[in-house]
Nucleic acid binder design. Structure first.
Lengths: 137, 137
DNA sequence: CCAGTAACTTGCATTTTGCAAGTGTGTGGC
DNA sequence: GCCACACACTTGCAAAATGCAAGTTACTGG
């Protein structure tokens, strides 16, 4: 099979990025993965309450587009771990841009991102492993 | 009445940003406005072929959330001009992050963004005018 | 055998899309 | 006045996506 299908809308990088992660849930899943979550259960338990069918669908799509990979981390009982690829981790910069825009322009919103943004807002961070956002700037 | 409604999903800046512009079209409209387009017709004539009902809806939503303003720029015949507010212009950074991610990770995509980049990225791209894209099936 | 957990699927009502066609307002030409 | 035309939208659906609840499968410990 070919590695990529024809462009759906245009060759514009923005349009194609939006076709992959331009919906209300995908980037929240990426956020949670960046924060150190890695199982379906942890992801389903997000603050925003993503419906499980949507989560399953987004995980499939994100895997299909090479943003994350699914792999069993134990065999008996089989349990899966979702982790970001480099492509997925690079979305951290997009998240960061969104977070900066949101905190600046939507009153009341806070940074809920582990690894810290530029404005010094504290995050109620729990035991994160050693995963950090590849922050620009 | 309160000045703003309760958070739809969570106080997370990312989640709230996505509630405003987290769909497949909003940021493309912002892109076109940043590129200098300002009338409904010019926006409707985008490369990706946004349906006019969707465009009308997005313009209303973006105006409601203070990302752009609509104003008549001539009276007889009345013609409207859509322009970004500072809030809307700041989305340029989000666009930039998306464009960088896309060009880096989605093979074949190109930058189609005019001027106004904070890192000196330039586009020799020019805009096509009223060319129809009958590509949608 | 039973309860429990993780990881999904399924059903179905509601909402959002996408496409085409239509409407309202005003302008210039004849 | 009448017609063609352009701009800025609406309207009418069919099709798809979303959201909620409940069900399913695989396994394990008691």
């Amino acid at each position: 099979m070919s590695t990529h299908k024809a462009f759906l809308r245009s060759p514009c990088a923005l349009a194609n990025s939006l076709d992959l992660v331009g919906d209300r849930w995908s980037l929240l899943v990426v956020r949670d993965l960046l924060q150190g979550k890695h199982t379906y259960g942890e992801l389903a338990d997000s603050r925003e309450g993503i419906p499980t069918n949507i989560l399953a669908d987004r995980l499939k799509r994100l895997e299909a587009s090479g943003i994350l990979v699914k792999a069993p981390y134990q065999e008996r009982p089989v349990r899966y771990s979702y982790t970001l690829t480099p492509k997925g981790k690079d979305l951290g910069n997009v998240l960061l841009a969104f977070v900066r825009w949101g905190t600046q322009h939507i009153p009341g919103t806070v940074v809920m991102k582990a690894g810290q943004a530029s404005d010094g807002t504290k995050t109620p961070e729990k035991t994160s492993r050693h995963r950090r956002v590849g922050a620009a700037r």
